[in-house]
Amino acid sequence: MKKTAESCMIVATLIATVVFAAAFTVPGGVKGDTGSPNFLKKVSFIIFSIFDPISLVCSSCSIITFLSILTARFALEDFLWTLPMKLVLGILTLFFSIAAMMVVFCATFFILFSEGIGKLAILATVLASIPVLLFFRQQYRLLWEVVRSTAFRSDSLISR
């Protein structure tokens, strides 16, 4: 659990760094006279503006959750409920962070390339869904096993 938390915390930190930087490097640039984004009225820019902070918040929550696992006291009773549920919460927020980051990536492609080469933006969207689906597929069993063994355990485990 500790190694998983360490690895996932590194990934969440990288995502937080990237989406934080993306918030201040607006795709398409800004107007020189007003400082407002050039593509402010485009739907894809609004999607970018919504999902970038969602990704930042989810990755930050994931970092905090994994940090709480690493700094836990690791008492026997913590392994029955607290630590497994923190692991589930951390992985879920990391998943939502990855998914939101990919939406931001796709929205950026639509902002920049929808008018000239729209097919490139569609291809980028299809390709961006692969890491999200891959992460979900690889972590689903771990999540299910942790939830099943924690939430649906018999009373005999609690009395131990």
Rank of each mutant, 00 (worst) to 15 (best):
V146Y: 03
V26L: 15
A100I: 04
I54F: 15
D155V: 04
M9D: 03
V104I: 10
K2N: 13
M1L: 13
F45K: 01
P37R: 00
L89R: 07
E145P: 03
T150R: 06
G32K: 01
I111E: 10
I64N: 10
T93N: 13
A75H: 07
V19S: 10
V30I: 14
C106W: 05
E115G: 09
K119P: 01
V43Y: 12
F79M: 13
A72F: 06
R148C: 12
P27C: 09
I47F: 14
S44W: 06
F66V: 01
C58I: 02
F39T: 00
G118K: 02
A124L: 04
A151Y: 12
R153Q: 15
V57T: 05
L157R: 05
F105D: 00
S36T: 05
A121P: 04
S68C: 14
V57R: 02
P53R: 00
A21W: 01
V147L: 15
K31C: 10
L127G: 08
P27G: 03
M102C: 11
F24P: 05
L76K: 11
C8T: 05
A99R: 08
I54N: 01
A22W: 01
F136N: 02
L123K: 08
A124W: 03
P27H: 01
V43H: 10
V43N: 10
L70K: 02
F45A: 02
F48K: 01
R153H: 12
I122A: 15
T34M: 11
G32C: 05
V146I: 02
A107L: 08
K2R: 12
P131C: 13
A107G: 04
F96E: 03
V26S: 12
V126F: 15
G118A: 07
E115L: 09
L133Y: 02
L14W: 00
L14S: 11
F110G: 00
I98P: 02
M1W: 10
K86W: 03
G32F: 03
F152V: 02
M101C: 12
F135W: 05
P53T: 08
F39M: 06
K119C: 12
P84W: 11
I122S: 13
G28E: 10
V26I: 15
S97I: 03
R153W: 07
K119L: 15
I158Q: 08
K3N: 15
I54E: 10
K31M: 14
F20V: 04
A124T: 03
G29E: 14
T82N: 14
I63V: 14
F105P: 00
C106G: 05
